[in-house]
Design a protein around this nucleic acid. Structure first.
Lengths: 228, 228
DNA sequence: CACCGTATATTTACGACGTAATGTTGATCC
DNA sequence: GGATCAACATTACGTCGTAAATATACGGTG
């Protein structure tokens, strides 16, 4: 039940013997703490992030962390910001449609590769300036699509919410559980078959196509409102 | 810090004196437990749902609950199912568009009236048969819109994810916090004004219009794919 | 009526959690 | 070279979910 996950979390520094100030240049920084927390979450899920555990990874007792962060919440916020900053932002070149889709697929890529980190990043509220590159890129694309500002805002928010929800749903349904282990597809096609063959599709395991299809659906609506 | 919330949680039955089997007809049922848990969450948020606290409300020690549920997770799952069952399902009459919108607005209504319960219901995975009425109603409407089964599935999933994400975002942004208290609108219009006037809209406090606009955007795309 | 198994509760206890409060050390500055 | 202070350790508190052991009353069976 509590077996090691295979991913070994290296201690960054060997634990110190007694109390007192550490040797010169051996002091902890918020960056180190944040990155260690991110690695811990990446490997074993948010549930594995414990003050004691994080301290252990950093070669320090739990309470030492409170010199750099006011509480655990703040550490998680920092992790979320860091994760957000690591998401790709494609350049402002090409058709607006491909730009938007590139943005969305980039986000989904991170969701699939680092589901635990993604979940933390999406669950917490992140300061808007961390997301500013993405916002700017999206709005620029929607502007190039010929949308007036108000419609840009609606489009951005709609796409953003859809992408977020789909990715969270996908990593949840794929059984990437909160605490590291991964399970098989649950394939919830119980006896919905009588409702419609379509119902099967709703829970069917083709997330790639579903993601793109939903995205295209939204962008199609955009196209229409542009043409009017 | 620990002040009463104004909403008093009544004890359903007075606590018993000693151990042993309760008098006839005084035994707990899973329904009672589930409903009490829902009331607790409704009034004070998921964070207030504690085995001890729930037991207290039911006039019982915490461990007594383990006779009816294997663990706390199961109780939360039951609450989620109960909440899901309480969501309105409009009848299959009228234009498909108004039916879909009615469905969505009904869900959002519950989200705004019972944000804490809604969050629990949306956060946990609920057995598909509990959502079957909604699924059936939505698919029926999309079928009436002339969509083939595959497109019905895409439309359903897209709308579902959007509605869920918007409602969660809204109750989060409106400051209905996880543990009962409500804060003001944070109005995160820091210095994004330089990006575009549209950026302001993204975070602007008009959730009603935003919700409907996003929904219309998606349904507009649907209309197009129907006409082809 | 006496008896007993079973369902339901209480009691006690364990380990893990976040963190408040306090103690201890080494580096740095006047 | 003593005082200051930053960064750690230590101890402790209250809370959590829940495992294990125990006690009681009801429903059958003799």
């Amino acid at each position: 039940m509590n077996e090691p996950t295979g991913v070994t979390q290296k201690r960054i520094r060997t634990p110190r013997k007694g109390p007192g100030r550490p040797a010169a240049g051996e002091s902890l920084t918020p960056q180190e703490v944040t990155e260690a927390a991110l690695r811990l979450i990446l490997a074993e899920g948010e549930g594995a992030l414990t003050m004691r555990r994080l301290g252990e990874v950093l070669g320090v007792r739990a309470m030492a962390l409170y010199n750099h962060f006011p509480n655990k919440e703040a550490i998680l916020d920092a992790v979320a910001s860091l994760a957000f900053a690591s998401m790709p932002v494609p350049p402002d070149k090409g058709h607006w449609r491909t730009r938007i889709k590139g943005l969305c697929f980039g986000i989904r890529g991170m969701a699939l590769q680092q589901p635990n980190v993604f979940r933390v990043a999406m669950t917490r509220r992140v300061p808007p300036e961390k997301a500013l590159p993405h916002i700017a890129a999206a709005l620029s694309a929607f502007a190039d699509a010929g949308l007036p500002p108000a419609a840009q805002a609606v489009a951005y928010q709609t796409v953003r919410l859809y992408v977020r929800a789909h990715c969270l749903w996908e990593i949840e349904e794929l059984g990437v559980h909160r605490d590291g282990a991964s399970a098989g597809f649950t394939h919830a096609t119980t006896d919905l078959s009588k409702t419609a063959a379509a119902a099967k599709m709703v829970f069917a395991p083709d997330p790639d196509r579903q993601f793109e299809a939903g995205l295209d659906l939204i962008l199609r609506g955009l196209q229409v409102s542009k043409e009017r």
